[in-house]
Design a protein around this nucleic acid. Structure first.
Lengths: 178, 178
DNA sequence: CGAATAACATTATGCGCATAACGTTATCCG
DNA sequence: CGGATAACGTTATGCGCATAATGTTATTCG
């Protein structure tokens, strides 16, 4: 691939990143949220309570990012953190009632954002987009090299399955052991 | 669009952003560069000396970002900043020799990154990607609303044309007046 | 001409990303 | 059992992004 084409592609990705994120920021601001926080709320809404390590895995970001985001969202009362019952290293994160309500609003603006993003594109293209983009992501994913199980992938598969924390709090312990 | 599809798309964009940028970071690190700085060097290499306002416009980011990046790249000797001859508000940014050499290396890794990104995708899809991604970007671009000339777009078109600074230094003044 | 407005670069601050390092807890294995 | 290793969350730091504010300079317009 020559430089012109390479540049066109990389720049296209970069600009989409910037603008999509900025647009999300605009939509999230009235909810008092910053880009990055919304996916954390959505993940908790989808999966239920989980420990922070599982969150960082699910979100595809590093633990310190989750630490800071959960700290802030806890401060605003949208999530709650409590020690995992059977693992003193871990803390379970869950949505509060206000957090659940907020997640519902995030879902709405998330739909609006996606619709806005694909406006004017053929339905066929729209349907293929997630797959294409995920393929690109897989190609450059240094955390999960292609065709390589990697150490990181094996643990990811297990905690995610066991990560669903029952309200009784007991499976949380098992999840943290995973 | 229902939430599931919207989520799939938004998450795909988000993850691509994170991973592509992280991969770029890995490739840029040996050159002592951080993601974001490379496009500044590439722009100067492509267009030649320009004032910072033009740079921020070309890169699609805000002026303070350019201020800090140019400051750092000047500190490492890769660019040079000098006052614009006919506008005391502006400063002209240009590559040094080491900056030009560095830009050449960035071009190489930029090609490698792009090739890595599209590995395994049909050539037809690859050819369409920049266009598709740019369409998405245009849809969510709050700085250049679709179908709206906008105040911002008018000035952008002019300085960019006149922004090409001749080595004589005189057109720079004209550019800054734009 | 001069007040009003706009442009330029900068500083301050906040944000989510990252890496590096750390202390505590849990697990593994000889 | 106990040393080695791994996992967890946290703190510190750096980075490019953003917005808000600022001071200086340039342009506009009555």
């Amino acid at each position: 691939m020559d430089f012109e084409h390479a540049d066109a592609l990389n720049q296209a990705i970069r600009l989409l990143s910037l603008r999509h994120r900025a647009r999300a920021a605009t939509l999230l601001a009235p909810l008092g949220l910053h880009p990055g926080q919304e996916v954390l709320l959505l993940e908790l809404a989808r999966t239920g309570p989980m420990i922070q390590a599982q969150l960082s895995e699910a979100l595809g970001c590093e633990p310190p990012s989750v630490t800071l985001m959960t700290r802030k969202l806890e401060a605003t009362g949208h999530i709650r953190r409590r020690p995992a019952p059977s693992d003193k290293r871990a803390s379970v994160v869950e949505l509060t009632d206000s957090g659940s309500a907020l997640a519902d609003r995030v879902k709405q603006l998330w739909c609006a954002l996606a619709e806005e993003t694909v406006t004017g594109l053929p339905a066929e293209t729209v349907a293929e987009l997630p797959g294409i983009l995920n393929a690109l992501t897989g190609n450059v994913d240094t955390r999960r090299p292609r065709h390589s199980p990697g150490r990181r992938q094996a643990p990811a598969a297990e905690p995610r399955r066991a990560g669903r924390v029952d309200r009784s709090g007991e499976p949380a312990g098992d999840g943290a052991d995973g």
